[in-house]
Nucleic acid binder design. Structure first.
Length: 870
RNA sequence: GCCCGAAUGGCGAAAUCGGUAGACGCAGGAGACUUAAAAUCUCUCGCCAGCAGUGGCGUGCCGGUUCGAGUCCGGCUUCGGGCACCA
């Protein structure tokens, strides 16, 4: 055994061993417990960032731990390879997105390998390859025929200068990121997945996902947003509207219908359009509503504006005329594109009514609950005993009674119906972009939209195209779009839109089960062997969209008979971000120049508190900007490759796992990685000394002295706590802390006798096994050096010897009135009476109980005694 | 704006069921070894008072429940994630 810990050699040797043994290539093994451990696959952006290192280390620790539990572990990896960054890089460097993407994949794959991940690379999946997206297109055609996919208009951000559709991310303060032009909303035809048909099931089966964080399930529930309410129809006032008809709205508060004082419609609503025909002011306002991005966050934060249309509708219960407003906060394409407004009991309506001097009619009241018109209050009848007022025949009712009575009358007169509604909208997947999976539809002048026939799949995306930022290049390529109709044979046009990249990432987890299968999307036998995924790991930012779409796709695949389970991911671990300190100087133009932490030196006061920072190159001060997510824009990224080269993969993995628990954000620290490296050197040094003296014989557990018992207790305490931390709680930071504590004991332990050395052997074996999932390379070497046959990856996770944990005496804490006043040592077998007596006898306790009466003594066995006195 | 989280020493964090706040590590301070440096080792390290034993204060803020609150309840503040075309 070398004296020095040299990660480069050890890691190369361990990786060579795994490669040669094909250690991580798995196949279905009937009868053996399987464990499918999946980390969210990366977008091949260029090189690995620390978030990847963190994600894949967490997954690897879990995978290796499960293997040590004797499971047949599948851990695959692939590439989420379609997406906008490739097109942006293409425009910047004049290189085809395909070439850029494949080069990135090759480099990032070599980086992943250097991390020593226990991945079955024979199952690698790349979503931009035809052998993958072919099956996506196949499913599309099946779902189109079933009606689960349909076509309708959707709203997009339109850049009138670049003549192209922009993603929300590409709209900055209402302007196109490249052209600077004011963005407008535009309606275009798109394909939609009818995810709303699965809303009820997506909601109810969340209850079965015991292994998901409650936080994520809550977010999904709220996103799906099941609500109970009613459709309400307002007859047009023919005199002002000019035609007969009904305005439909949905409301969760029909109980407040008697308080409705106006209605508001979206700019695109037919009533608004009709009113604008001879009204220039209204036309201008509608145009204004159409400016800006479609993002909901923008819509919700902008100033609420409206304009009266001059039209009226009739209140369905009273026949009163209510004015119709066009309002920029009413969303077209969401519900009916119209809302009824009850200013007295809705915050937004209240603001709007005050701004435009509309009447406010209170319909709920209660004793001592005088309505304060300066402040909106969400009054539900059932809360605090409130009842309806100003509501005619509906007066004096609580929420449910008012709701039922009003809806019953609406239903009777044909002006409404009870309705359950979801917030969830159908999923529009058409993208007017090149680098994505082609939508397999042919537009025929006589047959309409015809799906591409199965034997014609895949519709292959040409890979040698460089986009120019002005619309999709495919739309300018007759060699791509010119085709004949599969039904009638006449000249037709192929769809040139591609699919949302979320589609590829919605089913890759299933493809890993049979990545090279050519008979279908998945080989059902293999898919059902591995699925559902036992542990899924990825960033919290995917809590809603990606995870909801993947759950939806799993159900679609189930309904196609491809998989038998209802949910794709049994257990979910959402990992926090990797953050780092930021440093900047303010430029003359007000902008900021960001400096990488590696180029900055921090200054500390005598108490080690940071008081400033200077740039290393010029020695002048820089501003400290606080810790933020590692990003290009803040220039606070730390290159994992540089760290692996400098310290080795094990040190990087150890630091990442030790710095914080996986679901919290993790702050990068150069000093911290030094500490991780120091710890591994300590382990190496202790093992080196031990091995150099010759391996000892068997430990005789029955003849340990007190010090040896204490050492052995430390070993098994570490095993017990680390097992719990790794296996149950996924708290790798505290598991590592347990091993560090054990190392502190082992380093100080005696080595004089053969028995001492046998005990140290047991301790070092425990250290090697407990660290094996986290720092696999050094443990691979240590295991061999400790004279063990077989590789540590195939070893069993260590077992706790409970008899080693038994203690003769315990230390109890004594409190007086909840304040710590002393400690006592009692035999483990002491009775409650003995413990109480010992506590009362404590000198400090007597000092604090002198002159007062002891009212009560609380004894918490094994923990503390609290004496209550006054 | 709406939904979901988070906040504990100089720093990352720990405290499994309401029971010793700060395990483990980083940074700092003092010392040992060394010609010197690196590496390593020993001690120290929440704040205030005290030579010390010890005492007071302390888990973002305000209030509550409890023998006892970082943990539970009510009300805030700040920061972060998501908001359907970033992935």
């Amino acid at each position: 055994m070398h004296e020095q810990y040299s990660p480069r050699e050890i890691e190369a040797a361990a990786q060579a061993h795994w490669d040669a043994q094909k250690s991580f290539v798995v196949s279905e093994q009937p009868g053996k417990d399987t464990f499918y451990c999946l980390s969210m696959f990366p977008y091949p952006s260029g090189k690995l960032h620390m978030g990847h290192v963190r994600n894949y280390t967490i997954g690897d620790v879990i995978a290796r731990y499960q293997r040590m539990q004797g499971k047949n572990v599948l851990q695959p990896m692939g590439w989420d390879a379609f997406g906008m960054p490739a097109e942006n890089a293409a425009m910047k460097n004049n290189v085809a997105p395909a070439k850029w993407t494949y080069e990135n994949i090759a480099y990032m794959k070599s980086q992943l390998k250097s991390l020593g991940l226990a991945i079955d690379w024979t199952r690698e999946v790349t979503t931009c390859k035809p052998d993958y997206y072919r099956w996506e297109q196949w499913l599309f055609t099946r779902l189109f025929e079933k009606g689960v996919i349909y076509r309708k208009n959707g709203t997009v951000n339109w850049d009138p200068v670049d003549q192209t559709v922009l993603a929300n991310e590409q709209v900055i303060d209402g302007r196109g990121w490249r052209s600077g032009a004011l963005i407008e909303k535009r309606e275009i035809p798109m394909y939609y997945f009818k995810i709303t048909a699965y809303a009820e099931e997506l909601l109810s089966s969340l209850d079965e996902l015991d292994g998901w964080p409650e936080q994520v399930k809550t977010m999904q529930r709220n996103w799906i947003g099941k609500s109970f309410g009613a459709d309400i129809a307002f007859d047009y006032d023919v005199a002002s509207v000019g035609i007969e008809g009904q305005l439909k709205v949905y409301s969760t508060r029909p109980d407040t219908l008697m308080g409705a004082t106006y209605v508001a419609v979206a700019a695109e609503h037919p009533l608004a359009q009709r009113a604008a025909e001879n009204n220039a002011e209204l036309q201008a306002f509608i145009a204004e509503c159409k400016a800006g991005s479609v993002a909901e966050a923008d819509m919700a934060t902008m100033e609420k504006k409206g304009l009266a249309t001059g039209q009226f509708v009739l209140h369905p219960l009273t026949g009163d005329k209510l004015p119709v407003f066009v309002a920029n906060y009413v969303l077209w394409g969401y519900g009916e594109g119209a809302v009824m407004a009850v200013p007295a009991h809705d915050e937004r309506d209240f603001e709007f009514a005050n701004k435009y001097d509309l009447p406010i009619k209170q319909v709920y009241a209660g004793e001592g609950k005088d309505y304060d018109a300066s402040q909106w209050q969400a009054w539900y009848g059932d809360k605090d005993g409130l009842v309806t007022i100003n509501s005619g025949k509906y007066d004096g009712k609580g929420f449910l009674d008012a709701f039922d009575a009003i809806v019953a009358d609406l239903e009777a007169s044909g002006h409404g119906a009870r309705k359950t509604q979801f917030r969830l909208r159908d999923w529009g997947i058409s993208r007017q972009r090149y680098w994505g999976c082609p939508i397999p539809i042919i537009h025929c002048p006589s047959c309409g939209d015809v799906p591409v026939q199965e034997d014609q799949l895949p519709v292959v995306l040409p890979e040698d195209v460089v986009p120019d930022g002005a619309g999709s290049p495919l739309a300018k390529m007759p060699e791509f779009y010119a085709c004949s109709c599969p039904k009638c044979g006449s000249a037709a046009k192929r769809e040139t839109d591609t699919m949302d990249t979320f589609v590829e990432s919605s089913w890759y987890f299933a493809r890993y089960a049979s990545p090279n299968y050519e008979g279908g999307m998945v080989d059902p036998q293999a898919a059902n062997h591995w699925l559902p995924v036992d542990q899924y790991i990825g960033g919290i930012e995917h809590a809603i969209l990606h995870l909801l779409y993947a759950r939806f796709f799993h159900k679609l695949m189930r309904d196609e008979g491809l998989v038998s389970s209802n949910e794709p991911f049994k257990n979910l671990l959402t990992q926090g971000m990797v953050v780092a300190e930021t440093y900047y100087r303010t430029l003359e133009n007000g902008g900021k120049d960001w400096f990488n932490p590696a180029d900055v030196e921090v200054e500390r006061d005598a108490k080690a508190k940071v008081i400033g920072a200077r740039l290393k190159s010029d020695g002048l001060p820089v501003e400290i900007g606080g810790t933020e997510k590692m990003s290009k824009s803040k220039n606070n990224g730390v290159d994992p490759q540089a760290m692996i080269d400098a310290y080795g993969a094990d040190t990087c993995r150890l630091f990442m796992m030790f710095a914080s628990p996986p679901d919290m954000s993790c702050e990068w620290s150069d000093a911290g990685i030094e500490g991780a490296n120091r710890f591994l050197r300590r382990v190496w040094r202790l093992a080196h000394g031990h091995v150099g003296a010759g391996l000892p014989g068997e430990l005789d557990k029955s003849s340990l002295n007190d010090e040896q018992k204490a050492v052995r207790r430390a070993i098994h305490l570490a095993i017990k706590q680390a097992s719990n931390d790794v296996g149950q709680n996924h708290k790798f930071n505290t598991a590592i802390a347990q091993v560090m504590t054990l190392m502190n004991v082992l380093e100080k332990a005696a080595t004089a006798s053969e028995q001492d050395r046998a005990l140290l052997q047991e301790g070092l074996e425990a250290v090697a096994l407990l660290l094996a999932p986290i720092t696999p390379h050094i443990c691979h070497e240590l295991w061999q050096q400790l004279g063990k046959a077989g590789a540590v990856i195939d070893a069993q996770w260590p077992q706790v010897d409970e008899s080693a944990l038994v203690q003769d005496s315990l230390t109890l804490v004594i409190q007086v009135n909840g304040k710590l006043r002393g400690q006592i040592e009692v035999p483990a077998s002491a009775s409650r009476e003995d413990v109480e007596a010992a506590a009362r006898a404590n000198e400090n306790v007597q000092r604090f109980t002198e002159g007062v009466t002891i009212r009560k003594v609380i004894v918490v066995p094994g923990k503390l005694v609290n004496i209550v006195a006054n």
